[in-house]
Nucleic acid binder design. Sequence first.
RNA 1: UCCUCGGUAGCUCAAUGGUAGAGCAGCGGGCUGUUAACCCGUUGGUUGGAGGUUCGAGCCCUCCCCGAGGAGCCA
Length: 432
Amino acid sequence: MQQSITNLKDFISQRIKLSGWLYSKREKGKLIFLQFRDGTGIIQVVVFKDNVTQEIFDRCKKITRESSCVIEGKVREEKRAPEGVEIDLDSIEILHLNSEDFPIQIQDVVPEVNFLMEQRHLWLRSRKQVALLRVRSQLIYAIRTFFQKRNFVCVDSPILTPAACEGTTTLFKVDYFDDEAFLSQSGQLYIEAACMALGKVYCFGPTFRAEKSKTRKHLTEFWMIEPEISFITFDKLLDFIQDYIEEIVQTTYSNCVPELKILERDLSKLDQIKRPFPIISYKEAVEIIKKNGEQIQYGEDFGAPQEEALVKEFNKPVFVTRYPSNIKAFYMKPDPADNNLALCVDVIAPEGFGELIGGSQRIDDYDLLKQRILDHKLPLDSFKWYLDLRKYGSASHGGFGMGLERTLSWISGIKHVRECIPFPRLLYRIYP
RNA sequence: UCCUCGGUAGCUCAAUGGUAGAGCAGCGGGCUGUUAACCCGUUGGUUGGAGGUUCGAGCCCUCCCCGAGGAGCCA
């Protein structure tokens, strides 16, 4: 078995060797306490002068924060240690002694965000950031497993695209030889094509939005999961999304309890994230927003204050369905019961973490889709291939898109999405 | 793009228009149980930049730069 800090309890009374970095140090005369981290956790290493050679003791005295080293010692149960386990050091080899102080110190005051963001490459080593990236990894695993178990095929959509799927003002433009291209802001149109080939598909990749948004819910580069399912009805889609949310949250939660505790997440909030979820119509949502004292007219989209007024009614994600078609995307299928409404759903997270999911039944009629493209003044040429999907074996289908970082932000209780991605790209920030 | 707030030591912050300071970090010393250790000593400054007002500007004025929070838009 590989020895690491996470499984030290299996090595009690044994001599072990670990490679890692010095997290912090407390000197107390003939006794030195080293907080040592190896990427899997942090453990206290005890160095007593009379038990080691002078040379080893001197190395422990001079080692600085975040210097890399290899330690050897004996694992011992210790009630006074936070982890319940400690290492009595026999020897230490310093691999790289930092000649300059590590810029980020451990202190009670929280440094300014700008400072931490400039040091993002080093900030990643801190306890909370390590925990958060582990939760991110587990969330991705839970999502992929969810689809794999249900026989979905992962189909990657292109990142370089010839045209917008919804307008061009929020797209990043790049040179494409003698032409121009745009970074993808959604893989949806492409996986609609894939779902007509493979039945049940999803894509999971980076998405780019050149929106000049400057809020805790926005990144210019983020990761999105977009499943697309052929022959599905709208009600079945809502059912599917409920299964999806419950499973990815509960799986991530159960795999990440220690990390979520480090992040000080209120776990009782996550206990509640189980079916059934509240499903309300746009019309009902408007009533709730008005009741809670926020201004809104029927027919308007929700802004941030409206979203908040709605969400405080629920302690689970709320599904808002059937928005007026004219405030939604061109490809959404009209509700047969009321042509002015779209068969769409937005899933809004509790506790103010914002919109997690946007989904819909797609238009499967050729003529209607063509008309919508024209109505939205989109270039018909660019959508020829997309219209072809309604020309050859058209079928009812639907899907949704979910922002990974917003979902992680909600699950882990981290207020700002910039911490939920290793190297965030934001308006005015592309370093490091 | 708009609105609001901010920029002083490595970090967090003080400083009535009148000698730029503290805590932490660092460095030197002390301590056999520290948990954000403690005690003694100590290094450290182009006050974001450029102009201006003034006998005198970190502080007042103008412009610029950078950042934060939010709005619209969105996941």
